[in-house]
Nucleic acid binder design. Structure first.
Length: 496
RNA sequence: GAAUGCGUAGCUCAGCUGGUAGAGCAACGGACUUUUAAUCCGUAGGUCCUGGGUUCGAUUCCCAGCGCAUUCACCA
């Protein structure tokens, strides 16, 4: 019998679900499949809304979408139906949709997907409306949907139910659409300049090309441990050896490190390599490509908002050397041990057991990066930090590398690529003191060195963090909001 | 990894110095043929994140755990 006792959340949840499951059975009892099927020739709601109402000859329309609002008044129902392009009011009158249709209408809930055949016009109060002649149910929603006005505000709930978030928080889809357009713009920009888009392996036997900790996995049949890639670099350069002179890849990389508003364990990287180019060529290309994206997303405007600030992408962008910035903000000079020690001491940084260039990089990250509102190209990095980069011919302690900073974010990273296998092999072996091995870029990759020995053309290389660029161009403060399914810890199981 | 904050109905949120919980929307029953968050009458819905402790009594106080957020640290 019914015991008035403690009831679990899930049981209560089921009571909502149970009501809808009963409606599902009732729909089936009408001889109607509540899960619908193919529906041809329906029009986007946004298109329907542009039609001209004409009471004499009302346009005939067919739409499909989700019920997001429902006003039931006796023998007339008003629904708001939403598809990916917009919302529109739908009127259903008992007389017009037939006996079975009316029974079905009574069994509809917020969240159901329906198709409507009808005519387009205005109600007495002037609202654009589809007047139903025939109702089709396309999918029954058996769980209750979020509040029809308040929507969803709990961030965790939204992330764990991104599919609902997409429907009930309009900015989610807008932002993702902008990201898609941005990536499309990048592809168009590169394709039109003769770059070939390729796909390189995600499973690596050695996780090289960047300074980051990798995820590990295992291949059973071969019984070998593998890493998920942390960068695209080493395979794309092999393609340069193979004669592909302009290549790029837009793909997911994985880094086994912390999660923050700027970091997701998997993120999307664009890397490109251009034979016979160098890092100066990469600056021009970066500037042009990013500007193309800014214009695409901001109707040609180059001054765009980001948080409290306005970022001005009008070219040419500032170009400042690493060494100058470092000296300006810290007094330290690359290669000058005394000045570096003095600066570190002044800022209270421990330097014992650390390579001088590691200290320099600490100083730069701590004291200079924050000041880089940008867009600014910072160029010529200490060579020991860049084992895959060609050194400057006249200043061999510097590497031909730049990073693009905007709003304190590192957006792009580019190099004149090292194509000398002997120097490359040495650089791989040169572990810097003060950096854990797995966080160093210097990891011996014999197969890669072998490839270089067959001859790689001099080249410029560029890496762009797609998620960060999307954040910047959509004025989004957390990376989660430009990624559809950011990583979350699994929810705790109930009843354990 | 650290500090701080949060976790109450399907959703959005109240809940005072401790006395076992409320609203709006959603749901269910009823009225209503042009509503715009429709309205009106009625009903039901809760292991107050989890587990301990203090107490006559804990959603409330204490401890631990889980999840999320913010800031910091590391990384892009």
């Amino acid at each position: 019998m019914f015991r008035k006792c403690r009831r679990s959340v899930s049981e209560n949840h089921e009571s909502h679900e149970a009501v809808r499951l009963e409606k599902l059975l009732a729909i089936e009892a009408l001889g109607i499949d509540p899960w619908g099927g193919r529906l041809d020739n329906h029009q986007p709601v946004a298109t329907v809304r542009t039609l001209t109402p004409n009471p004499e000859a009302p346009p005939v329309v067919r739409i499909a979408g989700r019920i997001v609002l429902r006003r039931v008044m006796g023998n007339v129902h008003f629904l708001d139906v939403k598809d990916s392009t917009g919302r529109i009011q739908v009127m259903m009158g008992k007389k017009q949709i037939g006996e079975t249709g009316w029974k079905l209408a009574a069994l509809l809930d917020l969240g159901d997907l329906i198709g409507i055949d009808g005519t387009f016009g205005l109600t007495k109060t002037g609202e654009l409306t589809v007047f139903t002649q025939s109702l089709t149910i396309l999918a029954k929603s058996v769980l209750p949907h979020p509040d029809k006005h308040a929507g969803m505000t709990d961030i965790e709930f939204r992330l764990r139910h991104r599919y609902l978030d997409l429907t009930y928080t309009p900015e989610v889809l807008e932002r993702i659409e902008k990201r898609v357009r941005m990536v499309r713009t990048i592809r168009k920009y590169l394709d039109s300049r003769g770059f070939l888009e390729v796909e390189s392996p995600t499973l690596h036997s050695l996780a090289g090309g960047a300074a980051a900790r990798p995820f590990t996995t295992h291949h059973n049949a071969l019984d070998i441990d593998l890493f998920l890639r942390i960068a695209l670099e080493l395979h794309l350069k092999r393609l340069l050896v193979g004669g592909m002179e302009r290549v790029y890849e837009i793909g997911r990389v994985f880094r086994n490190e912390g999660i923050s508003p700027k970091h997701n364990p998997e993120f999307t990287m664009m890397e490109l390599y251009q034979a016979y180019g160098d890092y100066r060529a990469m600056m021009d290309l970066t500037e042009g490509m990013v500007i193309a994206c800014v214009e695409e997303l901001h109707q040609g405007q180059l001054k765009i908002p980001f948080g409290e600030r306005t970022v001005d992408f009008t070219p040419p962008w500032q170009r400042a050397s690493y060494g100058e910035l470092l000296e300006l903000h810290t007094g330290a000079r690359i290669g000058d041990a005394d000045s570096i020690q003095a600066a570190a001491a002044r800022f209270g940084m421990a330097t014992t057991g650390k390579d001088l260039d590691v200290v320099v990089q600490m100083l730069f990250e701590e004291k200079v990066e924050k000041t880089l509102d940008g867009p600014v190209f910072v160029f010529d990095y200490p060579a020991s930090l860049c084992p895959l980069t060609k050194r400057k011919r006249d200043l061999p302690h510097l590497a031909e590398r730049f990073e693009l900073y905007v709003c304190g974010m590192e957006l792009a990273n580019a190099y004149t690529e090292l194509n000398d296998p002997i120097t490359q092999e040495k650089a791989f072996r040169n572990q810097l003191a003060g950096l854990p091995a797995e966080e160093s870029m210097a990891k011996m990759d014999d197969e890669f060195v072998t490839a270089l020995k067959y001859g790689m053309p001099p080249a410029g290389g560029l890496g762009v963090g797609i998620d960060r660029l999307a954040m910047l161009l959509t004025d989004t403060q957390t990376i989660r909001d430009v990624i559809l399914f950011p990583l979350l810890k699994p929810e705790a199981k109930e009843g354990l």
